[in-house]
Structures are given as structure tokens and as C-alpha cells.
Nucleic acid binder design. Sequence first.
RNA 1: GCCCCCAUCGACUAGCGGUCCAGGUCGCGGCCCUUUCAAGGCCGUAGCGCGGGUUCGAAUCCCGCUGGGGGCACCA
Length: 415
Amino acid sequence: MSVRVRMAPSPTGYLHVGGVRTFLFNWLFARHEGGEFRLRIENTDTSREVAEAVDQIQDSLRWLGLDWDGEVTFQLDRMDDCRRVADQLLAEGKAYEDEGAIRFRMPDGGTTGWDDVVRGRVEVPNETIEDLVLVRSDGRPTYNFASPMEDVWDGITHVIRAEDHISNTPKQINIIRAIGAALPVYAHVPNVNGADGKKLSKRHGDTGVEEFRKAGYLPDALINFLALLGWAPDGETTIMSRDELVRRFTLERVSPSPAQFDYAKLDWMNGMYLRALPPDDFAHRLILWLGEQGYAWDAELVRKAAPLVQEKIARLGEFPDYARFLFEDVEASVDGGAEVVAAARDALEELEPFTAQAIEAALRGVVEGLGLKPRQGFQPIRVAVTGSTISPGLFESIELLGRETTLRRLSVAAA
RNA sequence: GCCCCCAUCGACUAGCGGUCCAGGUCGCGGCCCUUUCAAGGCCGUAGCGCGGGUUCGAAUCCCGCUGGGGGCACCA
């Protein structure tokens, strides 16, 4: 039998990385099994719906490369079907009216249980489950009714969701049983926590997918990092391509315990991905990213500057601080060493050709001539030319900057 | 309060009774390289929450405790 899973975001806000990790596990499972992966928007709470959220969610998923099969479906479209089922349950005495709403009659004694793929057997005493509202007094079905109904109608074989749904599961199981349908397999994956050990949410700052895109993370790196939150193929492998992830993913190896989101490790991993990019590809992504972020910097110059920073940055968002001096005027800043700066200016004035190699030879001559150590000699020049104590390679930077601008900055600093 | 889930280095994890005086990765510290910052190389730091069992043998199985988390809406 073929596998079919779904991701079911509610359009109440933007997609955040905790949710993405859960969707990723669904996606990896579906692709690994050669099954289907559906996108269903759970919008039964019209009052909390945010207008652009549906588009935003799809944009984020596309950016991440989590492609879904078939058309996007909306829970609200099944309102009438839900009502029909509710009426039937009413007629059968399995539900009852309560102040205009329809409530489901939960079993009295015993327990409701299931074999969770990541947690093993889970049992809940039925007396602790209250009769839940299936249909609100205004006629709209509730999430805990519509969701399992849609799972049944769509032929969902595996419900893979985060652990905060564990307490909903026995309710949904009883509803599915009441209509005589087959139960899906359940897998409750662990939550993703913030640094405070609490479930990741808006309160933890920039956890929306769009924020990661803005910061300059690569989708593949984010996916690789997220896959390792609660899952590992073995104890050794950390960097894995999408294909490898798909090939090796199994639900059985998903851990039941929550994982903490660690930006330091993400940054390291993103740096690995950035450095592994072919230089042209790296430059291309940099140009696209700068465009998205509203920088009007010359693409050709960015292309030339890209190799100078490729192994220095962990996020594309670090590029502007490294390379701003190539595109904008810098604050005239002096870090002592007026003498070496002046000598550097003189040495570069007539230098031919004006290439990194020649520049390096010339400046090394200047520094040695003054009896300075490389570190002492080059730093004032760096500060004069780039406006910062941290920069890409000095000689390549000067070549890119060009003679005219370089001489002007050196003159200002030497004055 | 009630129900449920979880528990290996600071973090992510490997480990499914002996091959573990616990391995990998990030972080952190040191050294090397070096024009800054990175990158890279080498070395190091640090952990099985506690108490009972079971067993010849327990990080691994069972029970309790403690600690953490999630859920208890006409929200999803």
C-alpha cells in the first residue's frame, strides 16, 4: 500500500522553523517511501486567519524545496461534509447537542491507545477525555473534528506531527472509530525548543523561515540542520545532501526527546555549504540575495568581490559588512601609522600593473623598508583603505577598489 | 490540579546487555599556519540525573523519585 502524508499548517501566521522541521520529516518520509505529500491549510478558525499567510507559507515551502503533491486543499471547504457526519453521529446517539453546538460522546471507561512509531504504546484513560465540540454553534466544524475527517477522506496513511498533538490523538481516534473508518499510523515527533528549553515560538525572536532567508542561510543548509534535530542516520554523519537525507530517512530512527535549536551549529553548517559552492554559484546567490534585500550594488563588482569573502562568511548577510568599502564611501579612519600609509600611497601611485600580485610586492617592500613587521605595517593600510580592521585580503581588495579610490583614501589617512 | 511525553558532554546526537574506563559533530580552550578576519590542520575540555531492582554483567531492561516539557478552548 502506498504511503500518503500531509502537512497541515494553520494560516494564523508565518511558517516558523519548528513547524518546518515537522513538515520536513513528513516530506522525507514521503519521498523515501515513494509516497505522496499533501499540503492542507487548516483554516477552520476564520477569526485568527491572517490574509497573506497562505501565500507566505507556500513561498517559504518553495524556497526550502519542500514540494507537495497535488492541489493545496483548505479545511473550510469540507465544512458541509463535516456537518453531514456530525448529523449522522447525532442520529446515532454518538453525539449530542449542547447550547447550539454538537458535542461528541467520548467512551466512559477504559483507555484509548495507539502504537506510536516514535514513542511506542501510548494509553490515555477515557475518563480524562472530555466530550469535545465537533461543530460550533455557528456551524463551523472544529479542528479536532475536521482534521481527522480530512485524514480519512484523503486517505492519509501516516499522521506525522509534533508532540504537542499527543493529547489530541485519543480524541481523534475515537471520532474515526465512531464513523467506522480505518486509523492512520501515528508518529509524534519531538518538539524543537529554543535556548530556554521551551517550545520554539514567535517569542523566541526571528524564527520565521523568512528571517532565515533574510539572514542569508542557504535552504539546503537549513534543511540539513533541521533534519538532524531529532533524527540521525548514525552517530557520525552530519553533512548530507537532500538526496542522501531522503535515501537514509526512516521514522524508526526519529528520537522521542525534544531538541534545542542551536544557531552556532547552523552557522557552522551554513558556512560549510557556502564554501562548498562553486565560485560562480556562490557569486550568483550573493547577487540574488543582495537584490532581494534591496542593495543596489553593481553586480559585476559583487561577482569579483565574491571570491574574496567566500571562505570568510557563514551567512550571505555577512557580505555587506565585509565588502561595503568597495561600494560605498568609507569613514576616514586612521589607526596610527601615518608614515607607512603615506609610503604605501607613494608606492602605489605609479605601480604597473595594478594587480594584487604587484600590489603585494610593492607593499611588502614598503613595510620591510620601514622595518615593520607585516602585521604592524599592513593594518594601518587596511584601515585606511577599507575603513575596518577586518577585511578581505588586503591586496586583492586594493586591486578591486582601483588605483584612484585607493590613493584618495590613503592620502586622507596620511594627512 | 488532572492527563500525557521526555531524560548520554554546554548543544545536536551514536549507543538497542558484554567489543563503552561511552564514539562523532558544533561550541569552548590551546598550538600551528597567517597581512586582519576567517578557513584549514593538530591537540584538548566536557556526559550516561538519583535510588532501588533484574542479570555473571547495565548508559542499555523494570520500578520509584527528581527534573524538564507538552496538553487540558465553541484555537490549531
